[in-house]
């Protein structure tokens, strides 16, 4: 189909300046980043109704084997395969809830609205939770669960390679006079992630991982019927239940730990810069239990947090 003579040129006819280089790169990027068809091909029609081949023809030369359309389609497909694969790997929980087809549709809509703004694919899921809230149609009727999962899965990425600071030790504590320990400001490791969730997605993720491991083992075994049953058996979706979780790392591995609400509140207060005394006041509910019960419990938490190296020097 001939190009409508009234159509504005899509790409510059020459690149004789940085501005024209920018125009050409912008034009190609629009083609490369446009979503694929359901059959994973480049869309035949451009956004204004022109054939995409006309748009591609302004940018790329054909050769003896491939048209301009086909040559740019290679990049279009590589782009989407790369970013979708990356999100697919980062979001096993979301995939388990939505199934592969709906997950891919969510991921594609997300990347159209929030294309990567970082030099690394690591950061690709950083705005996914926000998008799930903004566009609930992609996840309903499980939007709240998916929102929790997106937050949880992004937190795991953050835990993996965020900085660690020198650990706060018992010696550091003993250096502080007893009378001043209440005023002590303890810091938390920057990599430690604290989440307050509407669903117990930590348990769900573990169940998903376990199923994936069984499937992998099943693939390597000679029992096709057992494998088929395993594939058919989906991980049961969790019921709503307020959950507090810490995601942390120890010796290069990532762990989740459920927290009591009071422990969560104390940690959040410490992270906000409150003194130890203020954090305890914020965290512990008034007069529900005897003070002695709480003292033993809180001491146990702090001992455990120090063992897990969550506390660090300011």
């Amino acid at each position: 189909m001939p190009i409508n003579p009234k159509s504005k040129p899509f790409a510059p006819a020459k690149v004789a300046s940085t501005a024209e280089l920018a125009d050409l790169q912008r034009a190609m990027w629009r083609v490369v980043s446009r979503p694929l068809t359901g059959g994973s091909r480049m869309q035949r029609r451009w956004t204004d109704g022109r054939p995409t081949s006309a748009v591609a023809g302004e940018i790329a030369k054909p050769n003896d084997r491939l048209t301009s359309f086909e040559r740019l389609e290679i990049y279009n497909r590589m782009y989407w395969f790369r970013v979708l694969d990356s999100l697919y790997d980062d979001c096993p929980g979301l995939r388990a809830v939505l199934g592969d087809k709906r997950f891919i549709a969510l991921a594609e809509a997300y990347l159209v609205k929030y294309p990567s703004g970082s030099f690394t694919l690591r950061n690709l899921p950083s705005r996914l939770a926000k998008f799930i809230r903004e566009a609930p149609r992609h996840t309903k009727p499980h939007t709240a669960l998916c929102h929790d999962l997106a937050r949880f899965e992004w937190a795991r990425v953050e835990v993996f390679d965020t900085a660690a600071r020198p650990v706060f030790t018992m010696d550091d504590l003993l250096d502080v006079p007893a009378a001043k320990q209440g005023k002590l400001k303890l810091a938390l490791q920057p990599y430690l992630q604290l989440l307050r969730l509407e669903y117990p997605v930590d348990d769900f993720i573990l169940a998903v991982k376990q199923r994936e491991a069984e499937l992998l083992r099943g693939d390597a075994s000679n029992a096709p019927s057992a494998l088929r049953k395993l594939r058919e058996r989906k991980t049961k979706l969790p019921r709503p239940a307020r959950t507090h979780v810490a995601i942390h790392r120890l010796d290069g591995r990532i762990y989740f730990k459920k927290l009591e609400p009071a422990a969560y509140r104390i940690l959040v207060a410490l992270r906000a810069g409150k003194t130890l005394e203020q954090a305890l006041v914020t965290g512990i509910p008034r007069a529900k239990q005897a003070r002695a019960d709480w003292a033993a419990k809180v001491q146990g938490w702090f001992r455990n947090w120090m063992e897990l190296r969550w506390l660090c020097r300011r």
Binding site: R26, V32, S33, Y75, Y79, S116, F119
Partner: peptide, 8 residues
């Protein structure tokens, strides 16, 4: 281009 990355 314009702050968005293709990772290609």
């Amino acid at each position: 281009a314009d702050g968005t990355y293709s990772h290609d």
